[in-house]
Design a protein around this nucleic acid. Structure first.
Lengths: 133, 133
DNA sequence: ACATTTCATACTAATTTACTATGTTATCTC
DNA sequence: GAGATAACATAGTAAATTAGTATGAAATGT
């Protein structure tokens, strides 16, 4: 039960964007220099963040990334979801049918827990995180 | 961010113990038959659960396991902790010093999240889970 | 034209997970 | 006391996941 490095890196990078002037975009290399993050990995992560609208990109020279939403509208859950990290049980996945033919109480339990975690992670917004700086 | 199979198996097995007569112990093989769990894996898991007092064991023939605490005093957090699954960040581990020399806001963030998750998982007790049967 | 930077895919080393295999020790029943 | 049963203990291992790297193409500013 850990926060993946992917998620933490995304969070750090987004925080860097949030703290920068929002006029001009920040390039991957600029972000990675100050935050000492692996650039090629961050590139991949940003492409995912772009697909869900968390960032927008400017192509070419002097290009880079800007936040796609207000800092009050980007939550830790949004980040995790963008990276494909949703909560679940590793046994009772919807398609494995571990409990086929049995009355499975666990599916509803994981569901309940998942809902709680999602709403909790959704309550942690980027503005709160950068307010700690 | 998933519940490991280890945790789910432990939960299923403990639920089986909770639902059984608490007079006589249940053996690994009995538990695994009804719950279709891998016996040797469950053995290892039960040894960990024993170390933290969640179960007690009776050695030898006609032996097996019984719950070590009341069902209202065994939480999902207890189970996860017994299995060594605590919350954390995969980057900001206490000894990696990822942020050495920087003011690290993330450590306190993971700490805050960890505390929330721990108290949430602590609120989910075995009696609540088996009440769903 | 050229440098810069995003975009896209493929590959890989290390770690973790979810087990299995093998053997030992303790206890009950006969 | 012999044998069956079941916990105890450690080692090994195949598959999946994670956390990256490598290579190259496409777009844009100077």
């Amino acid at each position: 039960m850990q926060i993946s490095s992917q998620t933490e890196y995304a969070l750090r990078a987004l925080a860097a964007l949030a703290l920068a002037e929002h006029e001009k975009p920040l390039s991957i290399s600029e972000i990675c220099k100050t935050q000492k993050l692996p650039p090629k990995y961050i590139e991949q992560i940003f492409r995912k963040l772009k697909k869900t609208g968390l960032v927008i990109s400017i192509h070419g020279s002097k290009g880079g990334y800007k936040l796609g939403k207000d800092i009050s509208e980007i939550s830790l859950r949004d980040i995790m979801a963008s990276l494909g990290e949703n909560f679940g049980s590793s046994v009772c996945k919807s398609n494995t049918n571990y409990c086929i033919g049995l009355p499975c109480i666990y599916e509803s339990l994981w569901d309940e827990i998942g809902k709680h975690l999602n709403s909790y992670f959704d309550s942690i917004k980027l503005d709160y995180i950068i307010s700690k700086y």
